[in-house]
Design a protein around this nucleic acid. Structure first.
Length: 564
RNA sequence: UGUCCUGUGGUGUAAUUGGCAACACGUCUGACUCUGAAUCAGAAGAGUCCAGGUUCGACCCCUGGCAGGACAACCA
């Protein structure tokens, strides 16, 4: 199995609780010391960064202990699941860097086996066909504090249940008319143990088994048995299944599984600030058009993060750094952003882009002269080479980089001030030209030839500006993405209010930028750092002469803090 | 007024089976810088939910509270 390196040099000094459990299990030679995990998504939506944590955990644990990890689709509800989701899930897991080899499984692979197991339990007197309606079952289940009441069908003869179950399978009964229930304990303080439903009748076409079945197993019945059939040793899931664990074990007990039993272990799901994670809410955002789709770069989905420009390695490191435990948590997005910047800083090529251009004219630079200057592609990794940047008399710089009345500690350009133009010369601002409204339209400067980049010069300046040559710059659409919500915990709303009220109206700003010409030939997915600005990647919408860049995230900006 | 789970700096995670709390992110200084980025150096910030108890010694063990969460789909 592949386990991509996380470039994580921090020495591993302690084990998390899952590693401890597994280490102990191996020490006790449980399952012969085998470790086999699984990632079990339901194909009813797109994967998000919370799933990424689970994927990293399951595949990571397996490789760490020389085991295997299966990809298993939990496809027991044909009314919600679709092939489209299966495809996107596989793409996302692969993109994250994990390989399930030939072990691509489906709960639906086990429908026959599950049926046999169910018959076994009926014969054993541990399951029965119940003919109450869904409402009746709900009402008789009681509440967490009040015991439930037994079904009138609970003690019907085994032969009768067997016959009815067989006819349920054959399609003799309409949806909802009957269910198969485990016979456990309607008085149990654990609601999960109050005769849970194992099968329901659903005359629905399944994306894999077609019309072969009209009864489908419920999660609790299908999941643990699938784990068992696959030889899973550690069935890692999220906290909400904690109360299901007695049921998970009960089924295994009653099926008389003695050795190599899978063991369910729960951990706290990932929560991220400034976003929402529930599939239902994400679906809502898509359906209501608040975002452009599941892979909108503002979505916390893996496909959204991918389109946004996040790297698989950064997501893996993130999953590793947030750790895993059983307490509820809220990870600050800052942590994620740090992981991405760290990776992108190391790996992305630099380029210059001007977003709010103002013309800068070098009065003493020869008309018509063009110099091809060398720019380092990545100073963190100089062997990646250089690119050529044309320099000429008329440039564009960022409006923000010039102020007529600079505050103290302003290291940029102002009348009489000097700055370096990155990879070019030091210049001095002599005067400006304004329009009738008083806005600066031209900044006139003098350049100092002896300060050309690479030459020895005694002249020192505080600031360095990025720029593009007016004549050579190419135009690009740029989509500036920001946090989807304006508050850290958008789901934390008053009674009767909705998380949508915290949607950030400025989460997407479409603008244009002037780029250095080396960027004319880029392909979707390529990532860059626009110097002094941020990280950007080429969107799939991008075309040869109609470039589209997405802002992954900005560079840290301590000047913004000072000037505030 | 049931069962189960969880409480450690702002956030997250540690403290290897009891030895006066560590790491990462964040924050704040300063250095360096042809990216106000990165990097480097340093600082502040918790006495471990509370109260008892055991012990020479408790984040860790015991008792009792308190707080938060999960569970009442023919969803997963």
């Amino acid at each position: 199995m592949t386990n991509p390196s996380n470039n994580n040099t921090e020495p591993k000094t302690s084990l998390n609780f899952l590693e401890q459990i597994i280490t102990n299990d191996i020490a006790e030679n449980k399952a012969g010391g085998r470790v086999h995990t699984r990632f079990p998504p339901e194909p009813n939506g797109y994967l998000h960064i919370g799933h990424a944590k689970s994927i990293c955990l399951n595949f990571g644990l397996a490789s760490q202990f020389n085991g295997k990890c299966n990809l298993r689709f939990d496809d027991t509800n044909p009314t919600k699941e679709e092939q489209e989701y299966v495809d996107s899930i596989k793409e996302d897991v692969r993109w994250l860097g994990f390989d399930w080899e030939e072990r691509e499984f489906y709960a639906s692979d086990y429908f026959d086996k599950l049926y046999e197991f169910a018959v076994f339990l009926i014969k054993k007197g541990k399951a029965y066909v119940c003919e109450m309606t869904a409402e009746e079952i709900g009402a008789s289940r009681g509440t967490p504090a009040v015991p439930g009441k037994e079904s009138p069908w609970r003690d019907r003869p085994v032969e009768e249940s067997l016959d009815l179950f067989d006819r349920m399978r054959k399609g003799e009964f309409p949806d909802g008319s009957k269910v198969l229930r485990a016979k456990i304990d309607m008085g149990s303080p654990n609601m999960q143990m109050r005769d849970p439903v194992m099968y329901r009748i659903l005359h629905a076409r399944h994306h894999r088994t077609g019309d072969n079945w009209c009864i489908y197993p419920m999660y609790d019945w299908a999941h643990g048995q699938s784990d068992y059939l696959e030889g899973i040793t550690h069935s890692v899931c999220t906290l909400e299944f904690e109360v299901h664990r007695p049921l998970y074990d009960w089924f295994l007990d009653e099926l008389e599984v003695k050795n190599d039993r899978p063991r369910q272990i729960e951990f706290a799901r990932l929560n991220l600030s400034y976003t929402v994670m529930s599939k239902r809410k994400l679906l809502g955002l898509v359906q209501e058009g608040h975002v452009a789709g599941w892979n909108d770069p503002r979505m916390p989905t893996i496909s959204g993060l991918r389109r946004r420009g996040y790297t698989p390695a950064s997501l893996r490191v993130f999953a590793d750094r947030v750790g895993v435990a059983k307490r509820e948590n809220m990870i600050e997005v800052g942590m994620l952003e740090h992981c991405v910047r760290e990776d992108l800083n190391r790996t992305s090529a630099r380029a210059m882009a001007v977003f709010n251009p103002v013309k800068l004219i070098i009065d003493n630079y020869p008309d018509g002269q063009v110099e091809e200057l060398k720019g380092i592609l990545n100073p963190e990794n100089p062997e990646t080479g250089t690119r050529l940047i044309p320099f000429s008399k008329t440039l564009y710089i960022e409006k923000d980089d010039f102020l007529e009345d600079p505050p103290k500690k302003f290291f940029r350009l102002f009348p009489g001030g000097e700055v370096r133009l990155k990879y070019a010369y030091i210049i001095r601002c002599d005067h400006v030209v304004k329009d009738e409204r008083g806005a600066v339209t031209e900044i006139h400067c003098t350049y100092f030839p002896e300060t050309k980049s690479g030459m020895q010069s005694d002249k020192k300046v505080k600031g360095t500006l990025h720029w593009v040559s007016a004549e050579h710059a190419i135009k690009s659409e740029v989509r500036l993405y920001d946090r989807l919500f304006t508050v850290p915990e958008p789901e934390d709303v008053e009674e009767g209010e909705d998380f949508r009220k915290h949607l950030n109206p400025d989460s997407l700003v479409v603008t244009t930028a002037l780029l250095e010409p080396a960027l004319a030939d880029v392909w979707p997915g390529q990532r860059f750092q626009f110097e002094r600005n941020g990280y950007y990647c080429v969107d799939p919408d991008s075309r040869q002469n109609a470039l589209v860049f997405n802002r992954t995230l900005s560079l840290r900006d301590s000047w913004a803090k000072i000037s505030r």
